[in-house]
Simulated assay, not measured.
Amino acid sequence: MTVAVCPGSYDPVTLGHLDVVRRGAALFDEVVLAVATNATKRPLLPLDERVSLARAAVAGIPGARVDVVPGLLVDFCRDVGATVLLKGLRNGADYDAELPMALMNRHLSGVETVFLPADRSVAHIASSLVKDVARHGGAIDDLVPPGVADAVRARLAARP
């Protein structure tokens, strides 16, 4: 059984993320959408809410589940029996950012990274852009799974 881990902060989970999970589920026996904390980012949504929204979003994808990365990603991969990291790429900048991480993960653990190019229909979607559009009152409902837009708007409204 091949387990692939699709890591990210998922702040918030988007239709682009789900595209990668769906396509990955067709390639691997199981895809774990792994919600991680990035020390260089200040998330809008707390971890428990990101996990809850992600679980609702993947509920209809056979072979997909959500889990939290408590520490080092390669340790998480070992703990869940994953031999593959699954990453979506929207453009060359994504590749440039992801390649050093892929090489380090392979160096540390032997885990290989598989890159899936984004589908054109979602290649413009990034969590940071979704939050920026929402901050300025723009519509994000067609960029995220059901329930996510309401959660983002509520969290933004609660901020000073």
Score class of each variant (00 low, 15 high):
75 D>R: 15
18 L>H: 03
94 D>A: 08
81 G>E: 11
60 G>N: 15
56 A>K: 08
36 A>V: 01
35 V>I: 07
104 M>Y: 11
111 V>G: 12
47 L>Q: 12
84 V>Q: 08
109 S>T: 14
37 T>W: 11
103 L>D: 02
54 A>Q: 01
93 A>M: 10
100 P>L: 08
53 L>T: 08
112 E>G: 11
57 A>Q: 04
17 H>V: 10
12 P>Q: 09
17 H>Q: 09
52 S>Q: 11
84 V>D: 06
91 N>A: 13
36 A>K: 01
24 G>L: 05
86 L>F: 03
81 G>F: 09
111 V>A: 15
36 A>C: 04
97 A>W: 06
16 G>D: 07
86 L>W: 02
22 R>G: 02
65 R>A: 12
25 A>F: 13
92 G>S: 05
48 D>L: 00
111 V>Q: 13
109 S>F: 14
101 M>E: 10
35 V>C: 00
14 T>A: 09
72 L>E: 09
58 V>N: 03
79 D>S: 13
111 V>R: 15
88 G>L: 09
36 A>H: 00
45 L>M: 06
110 G>P: 08
42 R>N: 10
65 R>L: 13
105 N>C: 05
61 I>C: 11
10 Y>Q: 03
92 G>C: 00
17 H>C: 05
81 G>A: 12
73 L>K: 04
19 D>H: 04
24 G>N: 07
40 T>A: 13
52 S>A: 15
55 R>T: 11
79 D>W: 03
112 E>I: 13
60 G>W: 14
102 A>F: 07
11 D>W: 07
86 L>C: 07
112 E>M: 13
107 H>D: 13
44 L>P: 00
56 A>F: 02
64 A>V: 08
40 T>F: 06
25 A>C: 15
32 V>Y: 04
15 L>V: 00
87 K>D: 00
101 M>D: 06
23 R>V: 14
88 G>E: 02
33 L>F: 10
52 S>D: 08
42 R>D: 10
85 L>R: 02
90 R>Q: 12
53 L>F: 08
62 P>D: 15
